[in-house]
Amino acid sequence: MKSVFDSVPSDFRLLSILATIIGITVLANWAVIAIINRLESSKLTSDSFDRTILIFAKRLISAVIYGVGIGACLTHIPELKIVGHSLLTGAGILTLVGGLASQQVLGNIVSGFMIVFFRPFRIGDRITVSGNYTGTVEDITLRETIVRDAENNRIIIPNSQISSEVVVNANHTDNKICKLIEVGIGYSSDLELAMKIMREEIAKHPLLIDQRTKEQIRDNSPIVTVRVTALGDSSVTLRAWAWADSPANGFALQCDSYVNLKRRFDEAGIEIPFPQRTISFADGSRVYSLAEGSNERNAR
């Protein structure tokens, strides 16, 4: 005796089954992602929580759920039944991926797992890759790492490449940064006054943080250390060590300090040397070049 379902055309039954499987797959993915998002929102109340793992896990779980859904759909299509069973049972998945995708793509996925597991950097960290690309890690996908630079460009670096490169992480374990502020002054300038001005101007900047030890504070050591680091051909190089609580604040501290130092040096009559050239001709005339690329003047 035939049931009512047996009287339905086979093509319509197949479409109904496929639609049901797709619907269950989408619903399951939505439910799991919603749970993870709720967990992420509750954990974000803590500043120490790492969002990288959950974001990467959402993409991985979605890939698995849709993979299972696609496999279930393929088992109901006679021509693709073998492929569907392979996806569902897990047998031959790596072979299938290796056959359908390139070795580089598979390497990117594995490297993505390594980045999330060993955590050389996390989302929100400021990194420099091979000395060429500097920016903030915006996202880590199964295939690539996305870095946003200072100009708001997105630098897309494959996971397999970034995992084999030298990465400088400004936020790894400690966000504080020390900026080196160097200024050259003329040999005829007052050296002690110039060093005093550097200490005063940098110390009063609101973004500077005090990195002195208890012993240094007790001994009344200056907040900013200034030393002579070189005696050049035309200038004495002074270097100050200035600390900030983040790379962004450190950059602002450094830029503001150069402006303030230039202003104070001008007021105090402290010279900041620049290149000067004198060219003599056979007829006795001379040309003075104040700086490379500047306008020249003749003096006879």
Rank of each mutant, 00 (worst) to 15 (best):
V166H: 02
I162H: 01
K81A: 08
E271S: 09
K204C: 12
I55N: 08
S257I: 01
L88M: 14
P222E: 11
G186T: 07
L100Y: 13
R126M: 13
D283Q: 00
D125A: 09
A34I: 03
A244S: 12
R297D: 13
L106S: 06
V83E: 05
R264W: 02
S130T: 13
S86T: 00
R227W: 00
A248R: 12
T213A: 02
G250N: 01
L87W: 01
V167K: 02
R300D: 13
L88K: 11
S48D: 14
V287K: 15
L15H: 03
F251W: 07
I279D: 01
G135S: 01
R148D: 03
D266M: 15
S294P: 03
I127G: 10
D245S: 07
A150I: 15
R297F: 15
I270S: 06
F49H: 04
R297A: 10
V64C: 14
A19W: 08
I209S: 02
E138Q: 12
L261A: 11
G284P: 05
I53T: 15
G67D: 09
A150R: 12
I155F: 02
L74C: 00
H85Y: 15
R263A: 07
I162F: 06
V110T: 11
G131Y: 00
K2D: 13
R263P: 01
V168M: 04
N298W: 11
S294A: 13
I127F: 11
M114V: 07
S46N: 08
G112W: 01
G131D: 15
I123Y: 01
S234V: 07
E40R: 11
I70T: 04
Q276N: 03
L253M: 08
I17H: 04
L208R: 12
S164R: 09
T229L: 04
R143Y: 07
A248D: 06
C255G: 01
S285M: 13
V64Q: 08
Y133A: 00
V4M: 14
Q276P: 04
I61A: 06
A57M: 12
G107R: 09
S280G: 05
I181C: 11
N298V: 15
